[in-house]
Design a protein around this nucleic acid. Structure first.
Lengths: 209, 209
DNA sequence: TGAGTGGCATAACGGCGTTACGTCTATAAC
DNA sequence: GTTATAGACGTAACGCCGTTATGCCACTCA
């Protein structure tokens, strides 16, 4: 059960075991099963291990969030190469939704407060801001080419983030209870229509009055 | 501590006491303090009372949700009298945000999954749909006057709901941790800009290509 | 060789949702 | 008026949670 780092020889790394166990439990059983006792049991140690290496459940969740935000930012950064700034903006939004749907449990912990009492550490907040800066950067690029009809980049970025986050949250939340409107295409179509409309509304050129 | 109904004389109503206590705790201390033990203590009974009258914590939360969705739908319905269907759509969005900010704790329980393990009952889901139908109704009205350039009402309603829900969620979530961008006007401005842009993008008349 | 330290298990604490059990009260039946 | 029945609910417990006091053991270093 002990994973290992190749330092000089095979050295048991309890910290990595615990984090891996936590990620596996989160992925396989959901956030409600993410308890110190279960993680420790899966990692093959007692609950004390979590306190030795992470300071407690908060620290463990922080580590999970750090991992999640890094993977998330990577996914957004990889969606970059597009022809136009406006295309990059749309591409990021699509990548955002894709990642959230492919990493539901992580997304719920990162953006939907799935772990009850948790407040993210400063480090987590800083890493989390990287993804926002990627979005903001594309907004600034579009503004500098005079494509967007609004001067404050944060306002535009927040508008886009709000739309994407809202639609994705509703999609993830409705995935379980209803079987009615869960037909794959509905949420995707809403997403595309809403995003196109928002972008059109923010676009400078073809506007009247 | 016993509230009363005027039936014939003053009859102690444990059920109402419990629900009132729960709403008070939710409002004053937040959802993390919403425990069966605390509610019972505040209502002046033992934990059994919650099980007698609500079947358990789930039933109590359902009752809270029912109350919340009714007040929420009332607030949206009261935002109706506008000149144009498009104005009514915007008015509902503003009323949505206003109610959420004025009833944060309720909103977090209703739309942000603040009570950890809870899954809403069918009755709650039905009442919750009333608010959605109000939104959908305005969308249909706007479509029937040929003001919106998209045929499926659910798609448009989901777009608007997603945007409003996303922005409001982010605003509520960022209210606590950051002190940076919490200046009142930023979120409000983002909300207005985003909403106007989305509406403009969905609007039929002044569109090119 | 001895002291000191870091990693960790055991067992406990208080708080959580929930429930088995018993009691008490109010109504219904005779 | 007495008895039976049922509903309301207090007590105390169960198993789960996050957390921690205590102590053991292996290791390093003087």
């Amino acid at each position: 059960m002990s994973s290992a780092r190749t330092v000089a020889l095979s050295i048991p790394d309890t910290r990595a075991d615990i984090l891996l166990a936590a990620l596996a439990i989160l992925d396989e059983e959901g956030h409600s099963s993410l308890t110190v006792r279960r993680v420790a049991a899966r990692a093959g140690c007692s609950t004390i291990g979590v306190y030795t290496w992470f300071g407690g459940k908060d620290g463990l969740v922080d580590a999970i969030l750090l991992d999640g935000f890094r993977r998330f930012a990577d996914a957004l950064a990889r969606a970059r190469p597009r022809k136009s700034p406006l295309g990059a903006l749309l591409g990021q939004a699509v990548a955002y939704r894709r990642w959230a749907l492919d990493n539901r449990m992580s997304y719920e912990v990162m953006f939907m407060g799935a772990v009850p009492g948790h407040v993210a550490s400063n480090e987590v907040q800083v890493v989390g801001l990287i993804a926002y800066e990627l979005l903001r950067g594309e907004v600034v690029a579009a503004q500098s080419r005079n494509l967007i009809d609004e001067r404050d980049a944060d306002t535009v970025a927040m508008a886009m983030w709000g739309l994407v986050h809202g639609l994705v949250s509703l999609e993830i939340a409705s995935a379980e209870p209803q079987g009615l409107a869960t037909r794959k295409s509905f949420h995707q179509r809403s997403f595309e229509v809403a995003l196109t409309a928002l972008e059109q509304g923010l676009t400078k050129a073809p506007r009247h009055r």
